[in-house]
Amino acid sequence: MAQNLVGASETNQTGATNAGAETPDQPFGGLQPSRLIPGFGETPDTAVSPLADIPGLLVDEPAPDNPTVFEVGALNVFYGEFRAVRDVTMSVREREITSFIGPSGCGKSTVLRCFNRMNDLVAGARVEGKLEYFGVDLYSERVNPVEVRRRIGMVFQKPNPFPKSIFDNVAYGPKIAGTKKKSDLEDIVERSLRQAALWDEVKDRLNSSALGMSGGQQQRLCIARAMAVDPEVILMDEPCSALDPIATARIEDLMRQLKDDYTILIVTHNMQQAARVSDATAFFSTEESAAGDRRSGVLVEFDRTDKIFSVPSDERTENYITGRFG
């Protein structure tokens, strides 16, 4: 993997540490974006371009036929008068995990909520700019937000199972989407719970309340619930922030499996997590807006994850991921 290649060269040069070990001192699995890489900073591209030129070497590089799912151009989000996010431009590829990182309040959740029009539900929120989903403008008058949300599911920071049985939680989405037959619903529930790696734990108590589950189980239930409607994209806003490391690891495993079928966008404050699971990473930060004193969020850098975490091209990214900022 490109990460390992770059990381290995780095550790060789510093001669200090064991690549891949994760200790608090080495937040990125041994990958330390560092000026120690010769030439990094002045001509950042030279560090990777020789590798990138060898076809098939960078396995994280998307295959050329991996189509673009979301095309975002000059996206601005306002809460009333306040411009929370300014001029975001990026494109999200299919069957990849794209992570959003950045300091608190820089607009990660705000941008994420644009992708399934959840911002419509926030009083005073307004979205300007381009956001195309497979070439369709998501904010066009003719687009039905309910249908958008059915295709683009969302998992929230705090597990939010409904006060219903485990079965009914997962069956809720398919039911409102029109699946009526009990046997069909049973199939969907089993499939989704299996996908969410929860089936074995709950198959004997599908009819007990979801609120009696542990936090990690509830979060996996919410993932199962989101997948039961067979979405095309899953948005996750800090899905592991309330979970212990074991539950977090399970959900990360889950995301890697889901990647085969789904496009995933995830907001996380855990940079190791972003480095571990995602293919592309967007680093957001805040910037004094020209108009006023409130700070609006900007997309500082958007690139392949390995690049962001090894040879970021923006100094602010580097400062952030090395812990020198926020």
């Binding site: 295709r151 929230f156 939010n160 989101a226």
Partner: peptide, 21 residues
């Protein structure tokens, strides 16, 4: 809880489905 409402809407529920569900 507001989050429960959002959960339903994020699954593609209409407002009415969110209310009944």
């Amino acid at each position: 809880p507001h989050n429960d409402r959002l959960g339903a809407l994020a699954l593609g529920a209409t407002r009415w489905e969110m209310i009944t569900g």
